[in-house]
């Protein structure tokens, strides 16, 4: 009984400790194996190594997203149409409200790119682009909502942030954990900026060149269907726009969207399975189709 009690108390004590590794360095310091400075250095490196993309704050995600968006805009022109942009932002925010991360640090923002290429980009922090070509595959508001919800799914699942190499994060967290002040010295700023530049390269490479993995695309489809349904949209729009993509994919030579996304036929089959298994059977609402036609044409 007494032994069990002691065990329980020791377990409780361990759970109360901030970090087991810090206990280890403390013991080493007490035993004289390492000095205080070495202990602090080991603790900081250990903490930096333990950090991953998931530890980036919403604020850091936002600043990464801003620059990723600026980089994407070097390759595309913006389609300037205030009423259309406003409409896309309303549809996009409607599905974002129903998402797993409805409140981002800087909110969700949607913009139309002036190209016939069928493509979309979900930058970290909620900066989302869709092309005129992709909008052209949508026949109603449901389809547009499903497409935007898929992109919101990428943001919620932090797919862009997952592309950042571990070494960049270790570098950033090493500076971050070392410096208590919010204003960095030039040397610290140089290290952070270098890690920032590298992280941007990793994300843009994933978004524009390599594309997300098939699993990430399927996950974004699944989340997109869920968010669309929760917002009150029919999910049939996803099927319809994927069918349009299948037709387009057969006509194109593997550029743009089809270079960075799994074959639409594969996605279409999985989407149809998901809709059936989750009983997403809501009908298309005519009043929404009417306002879509009035705005998009």
């Amino acid at each position: 009984m007494r032994k069990n009690m002691t065990m329980f108390l020791v377990m409780l004590l361990l759970l109360s400790c901030a970090s087991v590794s810090q206990m280890g360095t403390k013991i080493l310091e007490e035993e004289g194996v390492i000095d205080e400075q070495q202990k602090e250095s080991i603790d900081r490196v250990t903490a930096a190594v333990e950090h991953s993309f998931a530890d980036l704050t919403g604020e850091q995600e936002y600043y990464l997203g801003r620059s990723v968006a600026a980089k994407i805009l070097t390759s595309y022109q913006v389609y300037e149409n205030t009423s259309l942009t406003t409409y896309i932002n309303r549809v996009g925010n409607a599905v974002a409200y129903a998402s797993d991360r409805p409140e981002l640090y800087g909110g969700y923002h949607f913009l139309l790119l002036d190209t016939e290429e069928i493509n979309a980009f979900a930058c970290p922090g909620g900066f989302i682009f869709i092309t005129r070509g992709l909008l052209g595959t949508c026949r109603n508001e449901e389809a547009l909502a499903n497409v935007l919800a898929h992109e919101v799914g990428h943001v919620c699942a932090k797919h862009g942030l997952k592309a950042i190499k571990k070494s960049r994060l270790m570098e950033a967290f090493d500076v971050l954990l070392k410096e208590t002040s919010k204003h960095y010295t030039q040397e610290q700023l140089n290290r952070l900026t270098e890690a920032f530049d590298g992280a941007l390269g990793d994300i843009v490479d994933q978004l524009v060149i390599k594309g997300y993995s098939r699993q990430q695309e399927y996950e974004a489809d699944r989340l997109g269907l869920k968010y669309s349904h929760l917002a009150g949209y029919a999910c049939s729009g996803m099927v319809q726009s994927l069918q349009a993509m299948v037709t387009s994919a057969q006509k194109t030579t593997g550029l743009g969207f089809f270079k960075t996304h799994p074959v639409p036929q594969d996605r279409l089959e999985k989407v149809q399975q998901e809709i059936a298994s989750k009983s997403y059977s809501r009908a298309v609402e005519p009043t929404r189709t009417k306002r879509f036609q009035m705005t998009v044409g």
């Binding site: 530890d55 980036l56 704050t57 919403g58 604020e59 850091q60 600043y63 990464l64 801003r66 620059s67 950033a172 967290f173 500076v175 971050l176 410096e179 919010k182 204003h183 960095y184 700023l189 140089n190 952070l192 900026t193 890690a195 920032f196 530049d197 992280a199 941007l200």
Partner: peptide, 19 residues
Amino acid sequence: ADEVALAGKGFNEQVEQEY
């Protein structure tokens, strides 16, 4: 949990300006 404690640290406005 660390969101507010880490406010303004890491990839922040200062880093964007430098970049």
